[in-house]
Every structure is written in structure tokens, then in C-alpha cells.
Design a protein around this nucleic acid. Structure first.
Length: 860
RNA sequence: GCCCAAGUGGCGGAAUGGUAGACGCAGGGGAUUCAAAAUCCCCCGCCUUUACGGGCGUGUGGGUUCGACUCCCACCUUGGGCACCA
């Protein structure tokens, strides 16, 4: 069949040139304002949100993945008839702008707004369906002013308070450091050993919501299981007991929190935090202890730093009575691994059943005594602690409750009852979750709107004076927060008594900014933080998309903030869980090409300098082979960053979008490869040629029904795949259908129908190419506005099925039978099969399993 | 150190407990071409066999099941988070 309609040669086909297609359709969308979200009581709404970017100034390929994922959902939902809200804005406060100010002297605001302008320019060619009319940056005074208003509401409701807490202190630069700025225990600029220093700071009472935040996780059915689990572990609910240990010096008691009171027999010491009041009290008269406590303050505040630090202890000389045997003494040690923030800041050490306690006991020569054995093994612990799961049965040794063999859980419960009955302790539910410290000793953040007055104390700023705006006239020529040394900004009259007072110069954690932006998008210009009408209509976020690295902090803070906003009347009750569905995507990675330099240090090569042959990499210039490290996180210093702007210039946005979605499931990391991008581009070119060929076709053909069946199957499969975020699978189905269409001999009308459906199904992924094909094939209006195609169920079922036949679970043959063939017939046909006959060798099968429509298994 | 996740051909990956390897890349063969590019067609897990076929195979070791990539237990490796990076 070589009619002209099928010939590539000689037909006046246009080539696929994205640079001609893409800007045209972007202009058409803008002209029609199809992405502008409007409240529409006639239609159901759909709010899809991607985590907004920090304006670094460079669009990263990770952004491309994130926003393309959201864009597919937004465009798909729009095609299904929803009123879609798909906003975009900027998480604009933060350290990098201050670092830039220190390096170049440019004001953080200028730096940030400059970056925003640059990034917007880089985002425009991607063809994302964002509603830019709702754009804002968290550093806009209009935004952070509303945040300050909410801070004052929280203050009034008692959701905010001040207390002392530790920060990283650089003793040379005389400044507070972020954890990121502490490298191996030293300040990143000064190189000085960092110490922990106490500062009075503002806190949100998130721990009051620990139980609610934990319990409500069950209702978040459309969140990834692992995120819920991570949050549950982070909140860390545990049931235990507060135990009272009487001091031998008669000065009262030390209260320890324990989740394993059943192991009390093995207690050999008490360990208290260096900041514990008892430690401080004893240090006043004990210079050696004071020196030890000072030593414990070395290093950063991060939990990782504390946990990994060498376990150090100091015997205070104080003794307490062992609760089980008042004649027995337990020594009280100060230990650097005990955290004042958790429990009571004091624990009893049971070396036999806790590895850390055991290491500590061996180091300092403290006794090790088992509280239980595993059943049948009466072995004393040596160098490995015996720590079975609480559900496992153990044999308690001479237990104070009278228990013999029991599970850990039973032992714990019995021990709690026993101690409570004797007034030695009190059962207590404990959470690991700490209150959220929001004070930052930095300039580029939302100012905390309070004033410190000598006579009135801490006085909230009046709401009519908001926003408390950051000043323009600041310099960054010395370390620290310039607000601290800005007299005219800092010195203000007290809002209450009018006497001279000082503004709070700390600003808020940037996580505060990102804890409510989703609500602000529903009414970005409202005179109050939110507007009731708009949050009622648009909230909740139906689909939230972002990086897995935000699984805990950002999402937990947002959940808390929504609850707090509800209490202050800024969100309805339905929005205390603001994100109905969450999707966490993986990273985009890229291989690193590395060789060894003359000095032995690694040299990183740009992909452009490298030629790939048979999976090995060689330098183009010298021909020397270089080492390939696959799937590495993109990093400027490793020269493996892929610039999406260059990709779009070379291949067009549709190729970039198609590729980042096609190669890996979205939740997993995807490796960017030049070959993959090339292949994606080629495929789009094939679809284009196919469309051009079909456009020129006329007349009848054969196999129309086969093509229609394939088309409806594809509609069904692609729709299901999009619904479940299986975008790579959706794209695989689109590849397969393209191949079927290419090979089809069906008539012109059917083929035209098929290519139009293909364009519709591709539209969420490659919207520009889809529009072009849609227009050329006589589609009505914009494909972005065409209703999503529906699969005809009648065309999805086949009359016959092919059943694999297994023998002992291994596939050995297959039979093709009518779909509704009765089971007995299937059995008969399966047993008659040659392979089965051969395997049976005259014997009768032990068992015959027929799963209708799926499989036959013959057990011999 | 603690919490979480992921490991499937040369590579990225597919697979409601039911034919492991869909789809794509790389590779091999062919067509077209004066030649190349582009395009099109076919093959492509490993071992064994002339062939038909047979054996092995989803990080490792166990277990549940007629049947396990999928469920359970232990381990190994890699990645994410650890409260002041965003």
C-alpha cells in the first residue's frame, strides 16, 4: 500500500520546530486568559499547588520536574471541567540574600526582586498553566504585614511565648549561626569552634497540638504512607513514667522520665543534661563540674551533632537512692547526650538494655546488670546490650512486680502500676515534638512585631501600625543582624506608655512564611490574612506537590499553622488539614564525570567536555577515560548541573517536560541524560510527522475497529495512570498508541479521530505540540479547553483471552479461549495441552487452580 | 547515632499475590542512499542446546502460598530527614 497519503517522500510536510510553535500557543493562552482562576458556583473547584520556589535566580531542572508534575494535574483537571486554581509565588526571605549582601553590598530586597524577575523570565517558556495574577513574594510588605497581624492574634490566644533556648554561637564573629553554617563543629567563615549559647526566643506552642497532629494523620488518606510515618515518628508519642529519685544530700528529688521502668533492676546511674537545674546548682560549688558543663557546650545544636559527639560524662559526686532498694546508692552523672528538651532532662542509665548506656558504663566503669534474659538463655550482657522489641517475651530476673516471663509491654505496664501504687512515680505520655522556635537573629525575614519597654515589658505593636517594615538603609559590612545597630528603626516609643522603647530585632523563621502561603493564594490582595468567601470556595489544596525533603518540617508546621489560623478565625474548620492530597517527587540527578588532577584532587568535567562510548566516558580533547558517577545530586561544584534554559533553547519546552516525566516514576529520582532528552525530542518529531501525514490522508482503509479499540484502551490507561501519578506509565502507553497509529491502515476519518485523541491525551504533558496538532486536525478551539476524552467500556473488553498455563507455578504454555468459557471447559482444555500432558506423563494432577480470565496452574 | 525510603537486563524502568522485563535508551542485523544524516523494519536477561527444548533469574539469606518483584523476618548497599538551608 503506497498511496501518496502514506508516503513521506514528496509530501509538503512542515518540520517540527518547537521555537515556532511554543511562543505562539503561550500567547494564545495568555490572550484567552484560560489560566486565570475564577470562583464559579456552577463548577467544582480544584486547587493544585506546587511548593513555591526560593528565588535563587536560576531555574533548576528540579523545578522543571516539580512544576511540570503539577501542571499535568492542573491541565488534566481543567479538561475534566474543574475550576482550577494553580498559583505561583516566591518563598523569598532567607539566608542567601543576606550572604549576597555581605559579599556584594547589594540590599537583600534588590537582590531578591532581581532574582525573581530573572526566574520568571526563565519560567515563561516552559508553558506552565500558572495563574500569575495571584503572584506574591513572602518578602512583600503586604504579605508579611498580614503574617505579623496573625502573630499578634496568636499572641493574644496564647499560642506564642518566650523562653530560653540554645543557638549556635560563633565566638570569633560574635554571631549566631544557622546549622548549615556550622561545618564539623566550626563556624563556616571564622573557622572557630562553635559553642551552644542560651538566648531568649519566641516559640509557637506546636507541642500543645502533638496529639491532634498525630491522630489526624490517620485521616490523610491521600498522603504517602511514608510521610505520615515520618511525621508520626517525629511527633514521637511514648508512654512512660516520671520516677522520683531521692537525693542523698536531702535536697529533694530528681525526676527522671523512662519508657522502660521494667528494667529498673539494671539501673546503675542517673544521667542529667548539662543544662539541668541540678547540674547548674552543683556546678556553682564545683569548678570541675562547671568546666565539664562548659566543655559540653562545644559544638553545634543539631541533634545529629549531639548524637554523633563522643559520649562524655562527669560524676557529680551526688548520690540518689535506688527506688527498689533504698539502701542502694546510684551516682548522678552529667552526660552530654542527655537533652534538656526531652522528658525531664534526666534519665536513669540501664546499661544492660540500652547500647548507649552500655558504652557509657564500660567507659566509666559503672556496673552492668541484666533486668531480664531472653527465654532459655541466662546470659549476662557483655558488650552488646540486650534490646528486644517491646512485643517480645522475656524472662524477668527476680522482678519487683512479681512478673516472670512476659512481654516487654506487660512488664512496662506492671512496673508503671507498681511505682504509681507506691508513690514513687507517675505514668506519663510524652512527645518528642518540641515547641517551634521561630526567632532568628537575622535581617532578611519577617520582623516580629513587638516592642520591649522597660516599664511595660513586651508590648505587641498596634495592628494599625503594621506592617513593621524592614528598613532600606542598612549595611552588611560586619557580621550579625544590622537591625541590632540601626538606631532609628530600632528605637521607637512604647505602643502602650509612649516612653522610649526598643523594637524586637529578631525576625521570624522562614518556615513561618511558607506555613500559610497556600491560604493567601486564595485571596492574595485581601486586607486581612484571608477572606472568608475565598477560603470557603478554594480551600483545601486538592493536590500538593513537592520534594520529599519537606516531608516533616514544612508540612508539619503548615498543619499546625492551619489549626492556629482556624482558632483565630482565618480559616474554616474544614481547613485545619490544608492539603487533601500530597505527592512527593524525587530529585533530578545527573552523572558526574571525574578524573584525578595532577595534585591528586578530583577534577570534575562538564558533560559537554565528555564523549560517551559503550557506557564509558572519554574527554573529547585528550581522549583520556574519565570516571562516571551515575545519579548524583546536581551540584555546581561537581559541574553536573543541567540548565533547563539551555535544554528549552535546544529542544523546546515540550521535550523537556516530556523527558522529565517519561523516564522514572515521579516519586523516584530521575537521572537526566542527554540521550534521553534526544530520544524524547525524536519521539515528539515522530508524532508531528504522523500528524502531518494523517492531515493529508483521504478515503477508506482497513482495521478501523482495531484502531478504535486501541484508542479507547489508551484513553482508559492514560486516564488511570494520570489519576495515580503514574506519569511514566501514561507516557509509555502514549508511545505504544503512537506506534499502533503509525502502523494502522485504517481510513482517514478514523485516523484523524485517533490523532486528535492522541493530542488531547498528550496535552497535559506537551501542551504546545498538542495545540498545534489539534488545530491542524480541525479540533475546535483550544485543546487546553477541550473536554477530556472518555473511554467507551464496550470497546475495552475482548472476546477471547489468552490464559498462561503454569505447571507448579512456572509458566509452561498458554491457551486462547472465549472470555466466558465455563471453568470446567477451561480445565479440560488446559489438561489437554501438550506441555501439560508431557509433564503429567499419565499421572493425575494433585491440584488444578483456575483463576478466571487470568491464569491456570497445574500442581503435580 | 536516630527516623524513613529504595534496590528488577548493559542503562532508566513496567508488572490489582497470577505470563518478570511493557515502554524507552544503548547495542546488533537489515532496508533506503553514490555516501552520510534522517527515517523505516527485525533481534536483544543469563547459561545450555544444531534445533525443539531445558535450567537459572527481581540486592543477600530465610519464611508464608498452588503461585512472591509484590506479603513476613533478618541482613547489606544507596538516598532523604534530624527542629537555624530552603
Amino acid at each position: 500500500m503506497t498511496s501518496p497519503a502514506f508516503s513521506f517522500e514528496g509530501s509538503p510536510m512542515a518540520r517540527y520546530i518547537p521555537a515556532e510553535i511554543e511562543p505562539k500557543w503561550q500567547a494564545a493562552w495568555q490572550e484567552a486568559e484560560i489560566f486565570r482562576a475564577e470562583r464559579d458556583p456552577e463548577r467544582p473547584k480544584y486547587y493544585v499547588l506546587e511548593m513555591f520556589p526560593y528565588p535563587s535566580g536560576r531555574l533548576h531542572i528540579g523545578h522543571v520536574r516539580n512544576y511540570t508534575l503539577g501542571d499535568v494535574v492542573a491541565r488534566y483537571k481543567a479538561a475534566q471541567g474543574f475550576a482550577v486554581l494553580h498559583p505561583m509565588g516566591w518563598d523569598a526571605f532567607g539566608l542567601p540574600a543576606e550572604n549576597a549582601a555581605m559579599a556584594t553590598g547589594v540590599h537583600p530586597a534588590d537582590h531578591t526582586y532581581g532574582n525573581i524577575a530573572e526566574m520568571k523570565e526563565q519560567m515563561a517558556p516552559m508553558g506552565w498553566s500558572h495563574d500569575w495574577s495571584r503572584e506574591f513574594a513572602t518578602c512583600d510588605p503586604e504579605y508579611y504585614g498580614q503574617q505579623q497581624a496573625m502573630f499578634l492574634d496568636f499572641l493574644e490566644k496564647g499560642l506564642v511565648y518566650r523562653k530560653s533556648a540554645m543557638v549556635n554561637w560563633d565566638p570569633v564573629d560574635m554571631t549566631v549561626l544557622a546549622n548549615e553554617q556550622v561545618i564539623d563543629g566550626r563556624g563556616w567563615r571564622s573557622g572557630a569552634e562553635v559553642e551552644r549559647r542560651e538566648l531568649t526566643q519566641w516559640f509557637f506552642r506546636i507541642s500543645d497540638y502533638a496529639e491532634d497532629l498525630l491522630a489526624a494523620l490517620d485521616g490523610l488518606e491521600n498522603w504517602p504512607e511514608k510521610v505520615r510515618l515520618m511525621q508520626a515518628n517525629w511527633i514521637g508519642k511514648s508512654r512512660g513514667i516520671e520516677l522520683y529519685f531521692q537525693r542523698r544530700d536531702g535536697a529533694g528529688e530528681i525526676v527522671c522520665y523512662s519508657t522502660r521502668p521494667d528494667t529498673m533492676r539494671g539501673a546503675s546511674f542517673l544521667a542529667i543534661a548539662p543544662d539541668h537545674p541540678v547540674a547548674r546548682e552543683l556546678a556553682e560549688k564545683d569548678p570541675a563540674l562547671a568546666a565539664f558543663i562548659a566543655e559540653c557546650r562545644k559544638g553545634g545544636t543539631s541533634e545529629e551533632a549531639i548524637e554523633k559527639a563522643e559520649k562524655l560524662g562527669h560524676d557529680t559526686g551526688l548520690r540518689v537512692a535506688h527506688p527498689l532498694d533504698p539502701a542502694r546508692d546510684l551516682p548522678v552523672w552529667v552526660a552530654n547526650f542527655v537533652l534538656m528538651d526531652y522528658g525531664t532532662g534526666a534519665v536513669f542509665g540501664c546499661p544492660a538494655h540500652d547500647q548507649r548506656d552500655l558504652d557509657f558504663a564500660r567507659k566509666y566503669g559503672l556496673p552492668v546488670q541484666n533486668a531480664f534474659y531472653m527465654p532459655g538463655e541466662s546470659v549476662e550482657v557483655e558488650n552488646e546490650a540486650l534490646v528486644p522489641a517491646k512485643s517480645e517475651r522475656v524472662v524477668y530476673i527476680d522482678h519487683f512486680t512479681g512478673l516472670a516471663e512476659a512481654t516487654g509491654e506487660e512488664g512496662i505496664n506492671a512496673a508503671i502500676d507498681w511505682f504509681e501504687a507506691r508513690g514513687l512515680g507517675k505514668g506519663k505520655v510524652q512527645y518528642r515534638l518540641r515547641d517551634w522556635g521561630i526567632s532568628r537573629q537575622r535581617f532578611w525575614g519577617c520582623p516580629i512585631p513587638v516592642v520591649h519597654c522597660e516599664s511595660c515589658g513586651v508590648v505587641p505593636e498596634k495592628k494599625e501600625n503594621l506592617p513593621v517594615e524592614l528598613p532600606r538603609d542598612v549595611t552588611f559590612d560586619q557580621p550579625g543582624n544590622p537591625l541590632d545597630r540601626h538606631p532609628t528603626w530600632r528605637d521607637v516609643p512604647c505602643p502602650s506608655c509612649g516612653k522610649p522603647a526598643r523594637r524586637e530585632t529578631d525576625t521570624m523563621d522562614t518556615f513561618v512564611d511558607s506555613s500559610w502561603y497556600y491560604a493567601r493564594f486564595t485571596a492574595p490582595n485581601a486586607a486581612t490574612p484571608t477572606s472568608a468567601e475565598d477560603v470557603d470556595y478554594w480551600m483545601n489544596v486538592d493536590q500538593y506537590v513537592g520534594g520529599i525533603e519537606h516531608a516533616i518540617l514544612h508540612l508539619l508546621y503548615s498543619r499546625f499553622f492551619a489549626r492556629a489560623m482556624h482558632e483565630c478565625g482565618h480559616l474554616p474548620a474544614k481547613s485545619v488539614e490544608p492539603f487533601d492530597a500530597l505527592f512527593t517527587q524525587g530529585m533530578v540527578t545527573h552523572a558526574i564525570y571525574m578524573s584525578e588532577g595532577e595534585d591528586g584532587r578530583p577534577v570534575y568535567h562538564y558533560p559537554a567536555e565528555v564523549e560517551l562510548r559503550d557506557g564509558r566516558a572519554f574527554l573529547r580533547e585528550s581522549g583520556n577515560e574519565v570516571q562516571v558517577i551515575p545519579s548524583a545530586k546536581m551540584s555546581k561544584s561537581k559541574n553536573n548541573v543541567v540548565d533547563p534554559v539551555r535544554i528549552v533553547e535546544r529542544y523546546g519546552a515540550d521535550t523537556a517536560r516530556w523527558f522529565v516525566l517519561s523516564d522514572s516514576p515521579p516519586e523516584r529520582d530521575v537521572e537526566w541524560t542527554a540521550a534521553g532528552a534526544e530520544a524524547a525530542h525524536k519521539h515528539l518529531g515522530r508524532v508531528w510527522s504522523l500528524s502531518e501525514r494523517i492531515a493529508g490522508m483521504e478515503g477508506q482503509g482497513s482495521g478501523d475497529e482495531d484502531l478504535l479499540r486501541a484508542m479507547h484502551k489508551t484513553i482508559h490507561d492514560v486516564t488511570m495512570a494520570i489519576e495515580s501519578f503514574g506519569f511514566n506509565a501514561a507516557i509509555a502507553r502514549l508511545y505504544a498508541f503512537t506506534n499502533s497509529l503509525q502502523k494502522s491502515k485504517a481510513g482517514a476519518d478514523t485516523q484523524r479521530q485517533a490523532i486528535r485523541v492522541l493530542a488531547q491525551l498528550m496535552a497535559p504533558f506537551t501542551p504546545h505540540l498538542a495545540e498545534e496538532i489539534w488545530a491542524r486536525q480541525g479540533g475546535e478551539g483550544l485543546v487546553a479547553r477541550a473536554p477530556w476524552p472518555e473511554a467507551d467500556p464496550a470497546l475495552l473488553v475482548e472476546d477471547t483471552v489468552t490464559l498462561p498455563i503454569q505447571i507448579n507455578g512456572k509458566r509452561r504454555s498458554e491457551i486462547t479461549v472465549a472470555r466466558d468459557l465455563p471453568r470446567e471447559e477451561v480445565e479440560k482444555r488446559a489438561l489437554a495441552d501438550q506441555a501439560v500432558q508431557r509433564a503429567l506423563d499419565g499421572r493425575a494432577p494433585k491440584k488444578l487452580i483456575v483463576v478466571p480470565g487470568r491464569i491456570v496452574n497445574v500442581v503435580i
